[in-house]
Every structure is written in C-alpha cells, then in structure tokens.
Amino acid sequence: MLCDFTVLGFESSCDETGVALVRADAAGQVPRLLSHALHSQVAMHQAYGGVVPELASRDHIRRVLPLTDAVLAESGRSLDAVDVIAYTRGPGLAGALLVGAGVACSMGAALGIPVLGVHHLEGHLLSPFLSADPPEFPFVALLVSGGHTQLMRVDGVGRYAMLGETIDDAAGEAFDKSAKLMGLGYPGGPALSKLAEQGDPKAFALPRPLLRSGNLDFSFAGLKTAVLTQARKLGDELEARKADLAASTEAAIVDVLLKKSLAALELTGLDRLVVAGGVGANRLLRVQLNAECRRRGVRVHYPELHLCTDNGAMIAMAAAMRMASGAAEPSKRYAFDVRPRWTLGED
C-alpha cells in the first residue's frame, strides 16, 4: 500500500464533469485537496427541461481533458506526479460513466500507473472530509443526492450499515418534480427553494410520508401527488400562490429529512451527523438541522457548498481514503466496466 501518493480523480456520472487532484501525505492524516475544476451542463439541458443522456456524454468528452489541464496547471504539477487515477464507476448514466472510465483507464495505461473505480455515493459520503471541519468516525450519514435518500451508520471507510432509504421518489426528485408541476425552470430544486423564500411554509397542509412509520425509510411520491392535487385545486390562483406552495413543499421535505435523521441518531446513540449530496446545500435543511443538533449536543458536518454537487474532488478523496485505510487497492488491469445501478456496499 502506498503511504504518500497523489490521486487524479474523474467524475462524469451525470451532468457535471469534474476533475481533481488529492494528496495523501501520511497514514492517519486526512488527504488534502490540491486543486479541482468543474463544468456544469445546466445551461445546455435547460432547453429540454432535464438531462439528455446523449448530450451529457458528448459534453463530458469535450470537457474532460481541458479540465484536466486546468487542474494540473493550478496545482503546479504534471501528469508525472500522479500515482493513481480514480474515476466514478457508478451509479449514473451509462454513457456518461463510460467517458470518465475510458479516459481514466486509457490514461493509466499510457502512464503505467494503477486505476481505481469509485462508487459515486461513497464520494458524496466522504466529501465532508474535504471541509475545514472534517468529521470523525463513527457517525450517522444522511445522503441526499439526486435519486438517492439514505440514512447510514458509518464506522469507517467501507464500513457502512444501511438504516433506511427511499422506497420510491428521493428527496431530490421530490424537489425537482414538484418544481416542474409548478412550472419552474430546470434545475427544479434550487428554483423551488429560491421561490420558497417568498412564501408561507404553513400555507398548505402537505403530507409528511412515513414520518410515523416506525422505521427510517423514506417515501416522497405521495408528497409529489399532493402537490399536483393542490396545484389543480388552485387553478387560476396558482400563479399568485406559487411561492406559498413552494414554501409548503420545501417545509414538508425538510421536516421528514430532519426528523428521520434525529431518529437515526437516537437509534444508534451516536452524537455526530454528516449530511452530503446536492440537497445537503439546502438552506432551510441546514438551518433546522443546525438548530436541533445544537440543542441535542450533536455535531453536524457538511461538505463545502461548492462541493455539494457532483465533483471530481469527492471521487479523488474517496479513492485516497479507501487506499489509505486498506479498504481498496488500485489495479493495473485497464479493462473496465461501469455500473449504472450499484448499491453502496455491494461488490
């Protein structure tokens, strides 16, 4: 196992192309981010109201090498300084994943250095270690990323126990689909949250699915249906009440995430919570979690705001932490596959 090494990481699972360099200097220390670059495809996909997989894949091809050059230039290093290349193996869009995997493995073969495929959600899970206030193991993790909403007990790198997960729509999907029902732009989640700042979160009594289920699973499909029903009831009044509906929708989603997270902390007896993934950037969620965790004496950790969305830094960090802990070994076998559907913890 390498003791001092530099990882070049590629992320291309959906609509962001990310490249980063991470350095692990010594065992026992958290690896540090040297540089990273990110390109978002939001502007390209806006015209279609959502991600178009083929366009996403083609844009990754255009962006990945210029971003790599930018990362190396910012860090003051060359490819000769890279010891390992990491890439997102899954889950995600198959064509998009293939771009990152293909570039990583071909570059590894050309340089004669090993490569390591990384689970996208593990990248999110470990991304708070890139922050100025990194967590310590063990902790409860709330993963709210795209199509995933999960609560886990995390005892170390690669030591994850599922506590609860979504049985249908995830929180991010509830934000995006509700936004679409209200006629808001893409990406829907941020647009809904921004509009919600002008509304009354108590204006509409929307459901909190599975809040009293007795377990830690999530379900947001019923909330989306309730938003649709309310929007139809409003009819011509929808435009005037849209901010109130957005605020009520956000409040319902955040309430479920908050109370399920607190229940997970009580169940495990742990006093540390990590929140990761795109929805983890939501302002209301952070405010309410911070207040409740402070009241209960619980430490709560987040990624830096600019690292909440998909990025190469989280992939390089996850690879570095897996290697430093002995949870994974990079390989010089350059034949690759991708796993568009892949459960975290599954080989």
Rank of each mutant, 00 (worst) to 15 (best):
D200T: 08
A203Q: 11
A203Y: 08
A203D: 07
A205T: 15
A205Q: 15
A205Y: 08
A205E: 15
R208C: 02
P209R: 11
P209D: 14
L211W: 06
L211M: 14
G214E: 02
N215I: 05
F220M: 11
F220R: 10
A221T: 14
G222F: 14
G222N: 12
G222L: 12
K224Y: 08
V227T: 07
Q230I: 01
K233H: 13
G235V: 10
G235I: 02
G235Q: 12
E239R: 01
E239T: 08
A240F: 03
A240M: 05
A240D: 11
A240E: 15
R241G: 00
A243S: 15
A243I: 12
A243F: 11
L245H: 10
A246F: 11
E250L: 15
E250R: 14
V254L: 12
V254W: 04
D255Q: 15
V256K: 08
L257F: 04
K259D: 14
A263C: 01
L265F: 08
L267P: 00
T268L: 08
D271W: 01
L273C: 00
V274W: 04
V274M: 02
V274S: 05
V275M: 05
G278L: 07
R283H: 09
V287R: 13
Q288G: 00
Q288T: 09
L289Q: 03
N290L: 07
